[in-house]
Write a protein that binds this DNA or RNA. Sequence first.
DNA 1: CCACTTTCTCCAGTCACAGGACAAAGGTGT
DNA 2: ACACCTTTGTCCTGTGACTGGAGAAAGTGG
Lengths: 396, 396
Amino acid sequence: MRRMTARPANAHQARLLRLLRDGGPNSRAQLGDQVDLSRSKLAVEVDRLLETGLVVADGLAASRGGRRSHNIRLAPALRFLGVDIGATSIDVAVTNAELEVLGHINQPMDVREGPVAVFEQVLAMAAKLRASGLAEGFDGAGIGVPGPVRFPEGVPVAPPIMPGWDGFPVREALSQDLGCPVMVDNDVNLMAMGEQHAGVARSVGDFLCVKIGTGIGCGIVVGGDVYRGTTGSAGDIGHIQVEPEGRPCACGNKGCLEAYFSGAALARDAEEAARHGGSPELSTRFEGSGRLTAVDVAGAAAAGDAVALDLIRAGGNRTGQVIAGLVSFFNPGLVVIGGGVTGLGHTLLAAIRTQVYRQSLPLATGNLPIVLGELGPTAGVIGGARLISDHLFSPA
Amino acid sequence: MRRMTARPANAHQARLLRLLRDGGPNSRAQLGDQVDLSRSKLAVEVDRLLETGLVVADGLAASRGGRRSHNIRLAPALRFLGVDIGATSIDVAVTNAELEVLGHINQPMDVREGPVAVFEQVLAMAAKLRASGLAEGFDGAGIGVPGPVRFPEGVPVAPPIMPGWDGFPVREALSQDLGCPVMVDNDVNLMAMGEQHAGVARSVGDFLCVKIGTGIGCGIVVGGDVYRGTTGSAGDIGHIQVEPEGRPCACGNKGCLEAYFSGAALARDAEEAARHGGSPELSTRFEGSGRLTAVDVAGAAAAGDAVALDLIRAGGNRTGQVIAGLVSFFNPGLVVIGGGVTGLGHTLLAAIRTQVYRQSLPLATGNLPIVLGELGPTAGVIGGARLISDHLFSPA
DNA sequence: CCACTTTCTCCAGTCACAGGACAAAGGTGT
DNA sequence: ACACCTTTGTCCTGTGACTGGAGAAAGTGG
C-alpha cells in the first residue's frame, strides 16, 4: 500500500491536521470555529488536503437543524509506530492517525545488549504487528530511549545505562529499516507527551512528569512543548544529591537519589530486608524466586507488610524531597508520577505529597495536583506516536 | 513634549523596532539582511514607522563602495524608566530607546515601608532624573519587585518579605502616576533580562540567573523568554531545603538555603563570629559600626581573614549544592551569579563551581560556564527597560 | 569619463484572505 | 404541503500583502 508522502504545505494545513488528530472527525464548519479563518479560505485548505489524500471526507454527519455536514477525517489508513525502549523491556504499539492504540506488545530485553540487537527485536515486533493486520505499513515512528538524546539528529549521547549506544545513529538507522520518518527522544519525554495527549496532563501548559523505573527521570513541559535543555539532558534528576556523603551511586558520586530510590535500589533494599528477616512477606517471595523486584515490594505492601511499606515511604520521602525543590524552582501546574513503580500506588504518592506540600512554597503548591499517570505503559508509546505526528503534521 | 503614542501596527514593524533597539542605527539595506522581507515591503514598513515618529532618519552613513545609505534609528527622544525595588534599596534609571543607561540613581529604602511610601520615593527619584534634563518625560517603565508577581496584571502575590504589598495594583497605580505604560516583574527576572540584553547572557537561549541578595532567587530563561511558572513563583529557590531538620528559617520551615546563605544570613553569621572572636578583621569592623553586612565580609575576605573566607566558602557550597541540582534538572547553557553578594567574587564562584562540576552530570556540565554577572546593579534597571520595551515594541 | 557597486524607489503582477451572495439540504410550524 | 428558518458549503469579487524586476540616485575606483 502507498504510504503517507504528502506533508502539509503551510501552517494552516498543519493546524488543521492537528485539530483532526486531537479532536477526531470534524465538519468544515466545526473546524472553522477553531481556526480563525474565513470559510472560503478554510474550504480551500481542506480541499487541498483532500487532494493530497492526508484527509478524507467520509459520509454525512447528522443534521443539527440544517444542512448536514460532511465529515472530514484523517486518512484512515495512516499508521504510526510508538516504540518505548526501557532498561529491561521494549514496548511497541501501532496507532491510527488519531493516536489511538490499535495494538500493543511488550517483550523483555536488556538495553545493554546494544543497539543492533535491540533494533533487531524492535523490527521483529513491528513486523508482528503488521502481520496481525493492524497496519499495512508505517507512516512514521517515534522512538524513546532511556537516556539523553541529541534531539535534532536523533542520536543518544553519553547514556550512562546504555553502554554501546553513544553516538549510534538511531534515527537514521531505523528510518532506513522501517522505511518511514523517525524521531527519537528520551523515554521520559515520551511519557510526558503521552500523558499530555491522552492522559492526566491534557490542557496543562507547564508540568513535570516524574518517571520512576529502573532509574528516575523527569519530563519537563513548558508552554505545551517538551523542554530538552542545552545538550538534551534536561530532566535527569536521578543523580541529584539527597544525602551529602551518602550511599555510593553507580555514577561515581555519593548520595544520589537513584541510589536510594529506583526500581534497582528498591529491589536491593528489599532483598536485604528479606535476608535479614523481619519481613515475612518479603522473605517468602524472596525464597520463591531467589530475587525481588519492585512488583514484589508492591505485593508485600498490599498485603500489609510493614517493612515493605516503610521501604516505599522512605523512597517516597527522598523523591518528594527532590520534587519539592523542583516545584519551588519550576512552579508547575501539575506533577505526574509514573513509570514502573506506579504499582506502589498511593503509599508512594502520599509520601511524595507530604514532602512537597510541607517543603515547597504555599504559592507554588496552593493549587498543585500531584497525581499518578493514568496511561501506564501506553504513555510512552502514545508519546512516540505523538512525537512523530507532531513532526509530520508541521509545514514541510 | 509629546510622548510615544504610536505602537507597531504589525509583527514586521515590531521586529524592526527590536532590531533597531538591539543593533542600533541601521540602513534599510542592513535591516533587509535581517528580516527576510523584500526590499519593497521593507521600505513600506519603514516609511510607515517614519510616519508614526517611532523611528527617524538622521543623516547619511559612510559609503561602502556605492550610494550612501540613510541611517534609520529609533526616535532619539524616547525614554524608558527602569526601576529595581530591592529589599533595602531602590535603583532607578533612565534609558534611551536603545536601552543605554543615561542616568542611574540609588537610594536606601526598606520595602517593608509598604507600596505607598516606596512609590512616593520612586516618583521622587524619577522626577529627579527628569529634572536633570535626561528626559522630558517617560514612554514606559519596567518595575522589579522582590517577590512573586501575577505577571499579566502586574500585581505582587503573597510576597514573603513584602508585607502590605499583597495584591497592591502596582502596574495600575504607577501607570497612573507616571502617565505611561508600566510592566511589573520579579526583580530576579529583570536581572536575567538585563544580563541577556547587555551582559554575559547575550545570545544564550536557555540559562539561569541566580541572584543572591537579601534573599536568593533564580531567573529562568527558556528559548530566550523568561519563564515565570504557573503562579509567577518560578525561580523561588531560597526555600529549597539543604539540610533536613536544619536551621529554622523565617518561612517557618527548617534547613532552607536562605537560612544558611543570603545577605541576611551571612551578616548574622559574621556578627556571631565577630562576637566570639577568632576573626580580628570582622571584630574590628563590628566594633566600628555595631553591625556587619555582606560588604564587611567581602572586605575581611579580601584582607585574607580566614573566618570570613570560610563563611563565604560554606555559603557557596550550600548554594552550589542547590545549583547543581538545578543544573541536572534544567541543563542550562549558562549560569549567571549576581546580586548584592557579587562582591564576594571569586571565592564564592569557586565554591559554587566546585559543587556543580562535582555533583552534576558531565553531559550537563561539560560545556557549562558559571560566571558572575557583568552589569552589577544596572542589570535590574536595564532589564526593566527591556521589559517595557518588549511590551511596547510588539504588535498593538 | 566610464564601468561598477550599493542603496533606494517605483510599478506591475501574484497570492492570501475576507466577506457577501447564493445554492444545497435539512429542519419546524401551520 | 407549504412557507420559513437554520446550517452547511461553494463561488466570486475586492482588498491588501508581498515579490521581483526595472531603473534612478549616489557613490567609488581606474
